[in-house]
């Protein structure tokens, strides 16, 4: 469904991506793994059109995302949960979710469905996003992305700074989303979290994609984790 072919991108004069390729099927969870600064978040920004490509192509179900304006990409069903959540901090929970529904003009039933997944948000609809706890903010970031009924969900460090119970709750939500047929592209530093949800991983190093492997293969032979991340 998602095809990323040999993409390169730069922040001004600094070349960050130098050829990243991978593909992702419907209902699949794939994780980009790599050290800090390897270019994982930049790949997400390129998919969302927030950073232009200097080479390569990104297609989603045959649609060339790299030729669309940034604001048109979410209309094709790409939901984004960025690193650090980046909520509309001064807007209420309800208003953040309303923004999430704008792209695809999702109906009120979508909001009900999403609030069913995150009942804690339903109790805080009139609360400003910046006043929520870290875990609630992460829930809101995911709920906002789910409000546009995505077929591809980009999750950038969703467990960053969260307590174990919240990480577990988010793991369940990700698996439920996958079960509904949504493709999930995950960037995550916590190897245990990756191993418990992902079906495949692609290692990224110095702005280039290296090895891609199934999660079972990685569980059986963790040497790639040592090679690319320096962890067991």
């Amino acid at each position: 469904m998602l095809e990323v072919r040999d993409i390169s991108a730069a922040y001004g004069p600094v070349q960050v991506l130098r050829g990243v390729s991978f593909s992702l099927g419907a209902g699949e969870i794939m994780c980009l793994l790599g050290r800090n600064g390897a270019g994982k978040t930049t790949v997400m920004k390129c998919i969302m059109g927030l950073l232009p490509l200097s080479a390569g192509q990104i297609t989603l179900g045959g649609i060339a995302l790299d030729r669309l304006a940034a604001h048109e990409i979410s209309r094709h069903g790409v939901g984004y949960v960025p690193q650090g959540r980046r909520l509309f901090s001064e807007l209420t929970v309800a208003q953040n979710l309303e923004v999430g529904r704008l792209a695809r003009r999702s109906g009120p039933e979508v909001l009900d469905h999403v609030l069913g997944i995150f009942p804690r948000l339903a109790e805080r609809l009139d609360q400003r996003a910046e006043t929520l706890s870290g875990g609630e903010q992460q829930m809101l970031a995911m709920a906002r992305a789910l409000c546009l009924e995505p077929r591809l969900l980009l999750l950038d460090e969703p467990t960053e700074g969260l307590q174990p119970s919240m990480i577990e709750a988010i793991r369940h939500v990700v698996l439920d989303v996958q079960a509904a047929g949504v493709a999930v592209l995950l960037v995550e530093q916590r190897v245990d979290a990756v191993l418990s949800v992902a079906s495949r991983v692609t290692f990224v190093e110095n702005g280039q994609s290296r090895e891609a492997m199934d999660i079972e293969a990685l569980r059986a032979d963790r040497s790639a984790l040592v090679r690319y991340l320096g962890v067991q």
């Binding site: 927030l50 940034a70 604001h71 984004y80 980046r86 792209a103």
Partner: peptide, 14 residues
């Protein structure tokens, strides 16, 4: 207001 608060996220949400 969403555009005012975060231009990139506004773009990301259509």
């Amino acid at each position: 207001r969403a555009t005012q608060l975060d231009r990139d996220m506004a773009l990301a949400f259509g």
